[in-house]
Simulated scan of single mutants.
Amino acid sequence: MTTSSPTRLLVLSAGMSTPSSTRMLADQLAGAARRRLEAEGRTVEVRTVELREIAHEILDLMLTRFPGERMGQVLAELRAADAVIAVTPIFNTAASGLFKSFLDAVDPDLWKDLPVMLGATAGTARHSLALEYAIRPIFAYLRAEVVPTAVFAASSDFGAAEAGEGADAPLSARADRAAAELARLLGDRAPAPQAAPAVQAPGLDAEFADFVPMGQLLGR
């Protein structure tokens, strides 16, 4: 019996402490995305990476261009991911240095056409626009496909349950909206075209099994 491959979500949390509000938001966004995708009949695999745990290897990669063992694993997971949830604290009206260093260290081509959900945390809501003017443009430059709703959480957002709309909606509602957009983006992605099978000419050795006749190459 043939089964579909699981949807692989890579969650990147740039929180600086343990526990951190950044990790709390990352977990909430990952949970919302998992529930939405599983409701559509998908099997979901979630892998969460705390960037603080590989901070030295991020710096080493920037300086030497050679990834360490743990950084190499994260890069492999990024290559294999169907979507990324990236969450950073806001420092001085921008993403944290750890978060930006990770983006600077990684090959930009890994982000091309990759669906990304963005999240950020700060002490007060006055930092919320940093997601739009400081962080979203980075992923636009990297040619990622960022969902329209970026989720910001101030300290007061955690545990809030009041009804609202837009930026005033409770955190869970904003997370669900972003998750729905991510699921829609994943659902709209067309499968990669499969190459036409090669025609094996009779009498050729196995090393020439992928031989393609000239007439087929010319489209005849």
Rank of each mutant, 00 (worst) to 15 (best):
E40H: 10
P148H: 09
I85P: 01
A179D: 05
F91I: 14
A125T: 15
I85F: 04
R35G: 11
I138K: 04
G166P: 05
G219E: 00
L75P: 14
A26V: 02
G123N: 09
L103M: 14
D27N: 06
A83C: 09
R8Q: 01
R65L: 06
K100V: 07
D107G: 06
A192Q: 00
V87Q: 10
S17E: 03
R184E: 12
A209S: 11
V199C: 12
V74W: 08
G164S: 06
R36N: 01
A95T: 05
V199M: 11
D176H: 00
M117K: 03
A175Y: 00
D82P: 02
R126L: 06
Y141L: 08
A192P: 03
R65Y: 05
D107W: 02
A95S: 02
A39V: 05
E165V: 05
T48C: 04
A94Y: 02
D104M: 08
V87G: 07
A94C: 04
S128G: 14
L75C: 12
A14F: 08
R35N: 13
G166L: 03
S21E: 13
W111P: 05
I90Q: 15
D176W: 00
F211L: 15
V44Q: 01
A161S: 08
S128M: 14
F99W: 06
R79A: 11
E77K: 09
R8H: 03
S20G: 01
A167F: 07
L118F: 14
A180Y: 03
A167R: 12
A178C: 02
F66I: 13
Y133H: 04
L103G: 13
A30R: 13
Q73W: 03
G187K: 02
G31N: 13
L171C: 04
I138C: 04
P193N: 09
V199P: 09
A125W: 14
S155C: 07
P191L: 09
A26P: 01
P202N: 07
M16N: 04
A105D: 06
G41I: 10
V116N: 11
A154R: 03
P170L: 06
F211A: 13
E45G: 14
E145W: 07
A161E: 06
I90H: 14
R143V: 04
T48M: 02
T7V: 15
S101E: 04
A125C: 12
L118R: 10
L29R: 04
D176V: 00
M62T: 15
L59G: 10
A196C: 01
P19W: 07
E69T: 15
Q200K: 14
D107T: 05
L10S: 01
A201H: 15
P6L: 05
S5K: 15
A167H: 12
E50K: 02
L59W: 13
A130P: 08
E38T: 03
P89T: 04
L9D: 01
V49Q: 06
A76M: 02
A190S: 12
D168N: 12
R126H: 09
P67S: 13
L131P: 09
I58W: 13
Y133P: 02
G166R: 01
